[in-house]
Each structure stands twice: as C-alpha cells, then as structure tokens.
Design a protein around this nucleic acid. Sequence first.
DNA 1: GACGAAAACGAACGTTCGTGCTATTATCCG
DNA 2: CGGATAATAGCACGAACGTTCGTTTTCGTC
Lengths: 230, 230
Amino acid sequence: MKGQRTRAGILDRAVNLASVEGLEGVTIGRLADELSMSKSGLFAHFGSKEELQLATVEAARDRFVEEVVRPALGAPRGYPRLMAICSSWLDYVRREVFAGGCFFAAASFEFDGRPGAVRDAIAAAMDEWMATLEKAVLMAKDEGHLAPTIDPAQLAFELNALFFGANFAWNLRHDEKAFDRAERAIEQRLSAVVVAQKGRTRATRPHRSLAHARDDTTATSSSRTRRGRR
Amino acid sequence: MKGQRTRAGILDRAVNLASVEGLEGVTIGRLADELSMSKSGLFAHFGSKEELQLATVEAARDRFVEEVVRPALGAPRGYPRLMAICSSWLDYVRREVFAGGCFFAAASFEFDGRPGAVRDAIAAAMDEWMATLEKAVLMAKDEGHLAPTIDPAQLAFELNALFFGANFAWNLRHDEKAFDRAERAIEQRLSAVVVAQKGRTRATRPHRSLAHARDDTTATSSSRTRRGRR
DNA sequence: GACGAAAACGAACGTTCGTGCTATTATCCG
DNA sequence: CGGATAATAGCACGAACGTTCGTTTTCGTC
C-alpha cells in the first residue's frame, strides 16, 4: 500500500529532526508542515504522539543497524571485526547518517530521567547495541586476538564512552580533532590488550586498522574548533 | 532584596528540573506551579524564556564549580589533584548533585544541534570545564608526575568521555557497575602514563587514588542493571 | 469505469505555551 | 510611620500543542 511509503517517509524525516531537536522537539504540526501534509493526515498513521515516538526510535534503530552494524559484520570475526565496528561508528557520525549526530546518544540523554515506553525503547536499543559491542569483544578474545584477562563488558563500556565523547566534541564543540582523538584513544586502549599472533605478525600489533598510526607525542594543547557551520 | 532570594530559589528548582526533563522541558507554568507562585510573577524575574534558560545554565555552572571543581582544588597540584577531579566528578553524579544526572551532559546533547545564545552558553561552560581538565593534566605533567609525551587535550578528551559514559550507564541503563567501570578505566589509563617519583615511591604507581586497586581479571560479562528506582 | 477501502484533509476541540499589561501587595528606607 | 520602590498576582492574548471527527480525495481491484 501507499500508506507504508508515506509512513516510512514521515519516520525518515522524524528521525533526522529528532537527532537535531530531540525526540520531544519533533512536533506533529511541524513534521506535517515539512512534509507538506496535514496534521490529521500524518497523525492518523500513528494514533498518538507516543506511538510516533516509538516508531521513530524503531526507525532509527533500523537505520543504525543498517549503517553501522551490518557493514562491520563483513569483516572477519575477532579483532578485525571489532576494529571495523569502531571505525564504522565514528564514520556514522562523520557521514551524518543522522543530521544532528548520533540519534541514540541524544535520545539517551534526553530520556534517561523519565519513565515510560519511549524511554524503555531507547534503553532496549542501547542494550542491544552494547550487547553487540560486548559480543565483538568476546569473539576477539575467543579467537585469541585479545588477552584472556579482558572483561568484555568493561571494554565495551570504554569504547562506547569514547564514541559518545567523540559525538559530543564534534557536535557541540565543533572540535575538528574529535574523531582523531577517539581513534587514537581506541588504538591506544586496544594495543594494550592485543595478543601477538602465532604466525608471522609483528608482536603487539597484529592488525592495525583505524587509519594512520600515531603516538602520544603529537600536538600539545587547545584542540580548538571549527566554529561556524550548520 | 528578597527578589534575589526568590530568583535563586527559582533557579535552584529549574536546574534540577532541567537535569531531568531537559532545558526545553522546563516550562514557566510548570515551574511556577511547583514553587506555588504565579506564572507572571516568576516570569518577571527573567523577562523571557531564553533569559531564564541562560540564568539556569549559569546557576548550574556555579553549582558544578562549587560541587566538583572547588573541592578538588584542595588536593596538591599534579597527579593527586587530577585524581581528585576525576573522583569528584564521579561522586557528583553518584551524590545526585543534580536530580537527573549531569546537567551539562544532558544540556550538551540537547542543544548541540541548535544555534542560539543558550547553546553558546552551554558550549562556553563545557569549554571552561575541558580547560580545567586540561590544565590539571598539564600541571601533573609539569610536576613530573605524568610522562612528558602526554597530550593534555587528548587525555582530557578521554577522561571526559569516560565521565559521560558513566553518566549514561548509570542514568539510562541503571548499570550498578557504571562508576566502577569508569574508575577502573581511569586508573588503567593513567597508570600507563604515570612516572615514577624520585624519592621513595614504588615505581609506576606513585599515587593510587580511586578507592580500591583492581586488575583486569575480575568479573566476566553482562553488567546488568539495578532495574527499578526513581 | 464503478465501487469499497485506505489515505489524506480541514476545521475545531481543550490545553498549555510564552508574553504582555494593569493592579495589588510587600518590602525597604528616610 | 509613610511614601517610594520592588515583587507578585490576575487576566488576557495569540500561537502551537495533541487529539477528534466528519468529509473528501485517491488508490487498488474486479
């Protein structure tokens, strides 16, 4: 039916709008205006504001899986796939898959204080994502790529924190170095727990992945900004 | 005057409300109700919604400085003070200095996509905070506590990311291990760049600070939750 | 091409939003 | 104590909010 196409179009717009203005900032009237349709016509697709928000979260989740998780699953399991997930995530913000940065980072901080179905949906999506991250770490460990002492939940926590940190530095502070910083931190963290491979590879860095190698000595302070944009 | 006291009371409430519902969610009518005063009476103190938001950000900044930065400045400069700042920050979320978690984490992600004076005020506050962090790192480096290769802005980025990560895990996911995880990550990160002290101290860990020592071997996966609360 | 169903519309509902005014009450100071 | 000033309340406004309802348009099928 045509209804499905319209609905998808609405959610597409809603998801982008929400990543900029927040989920609560996505107003039915505004959404209708931007899509040149009537409030009531749009409303009929969902039946309530909350239902629209839930559908928006689901649409965002699907887009996220498609744009971040799926592509990374192409990499061979273990350390390469873990690295692929990391750079895929950073790329997803860089490429502006959502207009206002990571939808879920925004939604998480917006709804973390309230009760309700929307909050639960966001939390569930984040649980799913964290589980994906943990699993990737666990696989790398099982493959013998990472030290057996590694705690997957701990490492996943740290990686996710760095992602959010990059999203913050990029979107609020317009820090041009945001992604470099995150990449460097990730490389640094992982190089400490990576295990030498049996065959040929060099020693403590069997797979390098996040672009260019770096050390701790470059640049000194400040970090300033790409002011003006958007 | 009495007006100042009233105003302070309003902002006190506004700041807490904003940390839970978001700055945009703080409505003049709602705020007036909760304080048992009239909309217009409250409104007169600020003259516009935006002015109220700006005052709220400023009030939050003051509270943050008072509750997080000031106490940590009591610690001796260098590595101890850096550690003091880190545990002070985690404590500030744990103690619920703001009812809904870190005000600035929430505000940053809420306003990072919009233009305007409020966004600028939030960004300025975060710039100030990041500068404080960087300075603490720089001092630790200058005191010879941290390796001279350390990039203060890079390390500040990583620490701040871990703070936000802890705030996220605690407030959205109700992860009981949130603070432990952040502490562990911080210790792990700093122990890698800490420098042995000339005098007596032991070698690569001259000051231990974040509570209990730990290693990477404890616990395995999951991380689950303190569901139900608030 | 006609017909039933699905989709979109337009107008209106009661509320709440931010913001003006004008009165009334507290508070401060000489 | 009284008069000036600051603080608060009351009321009204236009706009936007989510939602409802009855009507009209569009679509898919025979």
